[in-house]
Design a protein around this nucleic acid. Structure first.
Lengths: 137, 137
DNA sequence: TTTGTGATGTAAGAAAATATAACATATCAT
DNA sequence: ATGATATGTTATATTTTCTTACATCACAAA
């Protein structure tokens, strides 16, 4: 499903993610340092977080609040990765590699934009305004 | 509906919006200057755009490509505002004003976070990861 | 108790991203 | 030709984020 593209698209800067998660920059960077998340970077090396990244940070935060340490969280994530069949079969990943060998961030955004325009056109005439939201279903 | 909160939440910095819309910073600022959008600001005065803002910019871009000038676009938006009954009845706006008299950005983000946590909990155990996306339906 | 480790805070300095303002330019209708 | 509209460009200031280093605090192990 192409919603994965959307959910993994680098969109948010550090400041927003801090507010969204109520984590400190230090914490977020520390979690990255330990491989729990891998936000994208701008050309200028600023972190850009995706919806997935924010999701993950919220999970991390919850687990930490429940007393799990980073090592534990790492295991939990790893276990999930290996034991869960995953919505997106591995083949899909391969297929994507084949069909789109290394989408750049810019290409990704073009894709998103295209979908947005389309989604917007959808309920623009009949409703009052484009709804970027329905884009995430 | 509370999806309005989400759709109007200030999330994106200028750089991302430029890529998402393929508009120049100059253009985006110019459109704001002429009242076509009103992005929020950080404490430090940086613009923060919402999904709605991006939607609007994409609309503006399309209309401009179709030869409509800013004055025309302004009229179109104004007309939409007044003639369309709007999904969200006016009463709702009033109600929100009554129940939540002036939500700050921070409060808005707390709301979003809360919903995210909940949404995450939903398909976290049975699926592989939280799905911030389903949050936007 | 002392020591070590994990998780986070804080501060310094550099670099990137963005802000406003001013001036330039191209198109187009008058 | 003139003037307005829309956008590009440049300069300068400010904010935001980056990395690195050191401080701290809680807790487990020795």
């Amino acid at each position: 499903m192409s919603s994965n593209i959307r959910r993994s698209m680098p969109l948010f800067p550090m400041g927003i993610v801090m507010q969204l998660t109520e984590l400190s920059a230090r914490q977020i960077r520390y979690y990255e340092e330990h491989g729990l998340i891998s936000p994208a970077r701008t050309e200028g090396n600023r972190r850009l977080f995706s919806f997935n990244d924010v999701d993950r940070l919220l999970e991390i935060k919850e687990l930490i609040e429940q007393g799990v340490n980073l090592a534990g969280i790492k295991q939990i994530f790893a276990a999930r990765q290996s034991t869960m069949p995953s919505n997106e079969p591995v083949a899909e990943t391969v297929k994507e590699k084949v069909k789109k060998p290394d989408l750049t961030d810019e290409e990704l955004r073009k894709l998103l934009r295209a979908e947005l325009v389309e989604a917007g056109r959808f309920n623009r005439t009949s409703l009052r305004q484009g709804d970027m939201a329905r884009f995430f279903h």
